[in-house]
Every structure is written in C-alpha cells, then in structure tokens.
C-alpha cells in the first residue's frame, strides 16, 4: 500500500519539470523512508537524483518497497492542471495504475497507467569536488541566458574569491564575473582553482525547473562533472543534477 499526500502541488510540479528535462519515463522508488528517483538521460550525459524523505509529506504511508514507472509527460499534464496551492494525493492502485487527486475547493481525480519497466539502480559519478559555491537561482538563470546569446556551452572558472562564466563561438564571446562582493554569490569555497566546460542547454533547462527554490549549490572540479543541487520545499527534500563536462 502506498499513499502520499502533499499540501502543495508546487513541489510535485518542480519534480515533474526537473525530470522531464532528461527522461521520458521515470521510475520512482518508494520505500517506507521516502520517495526517490535516480536516472540518467539516454545519452548518458546528465543524471538526476531526487531524494524526498517521508517527513517532507503531509501524510506518507508505505508498507514495503515499490517501483513505479510513469510517462513523465502524463504526470506533467496532470500536474499542469494543479494550482500551486492544491493539495495532491497520490495512491498506487492494485491494477497498476496511479491515482492522483487534486483538491482545492473541488476535487479532481486522475488515474494514469504505469509503464512496465525494468529497473536497475544507477550509480552516482565518483567525483571529488574542489570547488563549491552557492548562488541565488535568479542570477544563475540570468547568466546562462546571457551566455546563451553567443554560445551553446559555458566555461566555468573558479579562483579565490570569484567565479568567471564565459562562452565563445564563431560569432563572438561573452564573460560574466561574479565575485564575493556580489550579494548573489552567497558562498564560495575554492580548495583548488579550476575550470571546466558544460553544455548550456542542460544547465539552463535544469535551472529553469527549480521552482520556488531561491538558491542553488554548485560543485565541480577541473574537467570533471558538475553537480547542481537545490532543496525541494522546506522539509528535507532535495534534487541533485550531475552533468558530464565537454571535451576541451
């Protein structure tokens, strides 16, 4: 038996949005401790890791482990019908369907079919992060849009006290410096200065899916994958995103 109730649809919307940037079918793993999802995109360039502990829900009852695979589009369509303030109830039916009830004054009851899928746990990349930073999510979105005007990739360079994000292409170049004096850069730890380049499409799609989270933690090392992380709501949920670097 699995029944999960959230008092706001906001977090579900964020989750569906974030996964939809990478995959078409998503397998949630429900355990008595909470709801998790980890998946790589088909090209194996990016990975999403969602951890959603039972404490983050209004009501969470789960008697054993379940894997539920849904078409992300199906989930997204239903959640688009929900207002951020709607209460969301999710129930796994015995006929392998997922029942989603949205409540806000009136009640809407959706049933979506689960997909049969073989599930195997994806391991996380093993990376030692020499650089960690915390930035306001709005500025991250802005900078990525700035760089996108010129380039389809972004080089991120960390030195003591500042981050430089830059891009170049045949049409020109662009660079943005965020230093410690800048209130948007909330935190910066540089154990070892470094630089790496990443695809901007992945980063910007992911950063757009952050929902209400107002800051974003970023970790990387020279020529290694980058990890972006933001909290899901205020009760312990968390979304991590890994992206492989481009070849220099």
């Amino acid at each position: 038996m699995l029944e999960v109730v959230s008092d706001s649809a906001e977090e579900w919307k964020t989750v569906a949005q974030a996964i939809s940037t990478l995959i078409e079918e998503a397998t949630f793993v429900a355990t008595p401790e909470g709801l998790n999802l980890r998946a790589m995109d088909p090209s194996h360039i990016a990975l999403i890791d969602l951890r959603w502990p039972n404490t983050a829900f209004d009501k969470y009852s789960c008697d054993q482990n379940y894997t539920l695979t849904v078409r992300v589009d199906d989930l997204l369509k239903v959640l688009k019908r929900a207002d951020s303030k709607d209460r969301v109830e999710l129930k796994l039916n015995e006929d392998n369907t997922l029942e989603l009830t949205l409540r806000n004054g009136y009640e809407r009851n959706f049933t979506i079919h689960l997909v049969e899928a073989q599930y195997s746990q994806t391991p996380l990349p093993k990376v030692t992060f020499n650089i960690t930073a915390r930035l306001k999510s709005t500025i991250v979105r802005q900078i990525l849009e700035d760089i996108k005007t010129i380039s389809d990739h972004v080089a991120i360079k960390a030195e003591q006290g500042k981050l430089t994000l830059s891009g170049k292409s045949e049409s020109g170049k662009v660079s943005v410096v965020v230093s410690k004096d800048n209130p948007e850069l909330e935190e910066l730890n540089v154990k070892d200065p470094g630089e790496a380049t990443y695809s901007i499409d992945y980063l910007s799609n992911f950063s757009k899916s952050m929902g209400a989270a107002d800051s974003l933690a970023l970790s990387f090392s020279s020529k290694m994958p980058i990890k972006l992380e933001f909290p899901l709501g205020k009760k312990g949920g968390n979304v991590q995103f890994y992206l492989a670097p481009r070849v220099d």
């Binding site: 093993k126 290694m224 070849v247």
Partner: peptide, 14 residues
C-alpha cells in the same frame, strides 16, 4: 559536434 565534444558520465562512474 555533440558526441565529439561531450564526455559521457559513464567515464566518471566506475
């Protein structure tokens, strides 16, 4: 361009 210039995460998962 995509495959020649982009690493895969598999390289970092061992």
């Amino acid at each position: 361009r995509q495959f020649m210039l982009q690493n895969s995460l598999d390289m970092f998962i061992t």
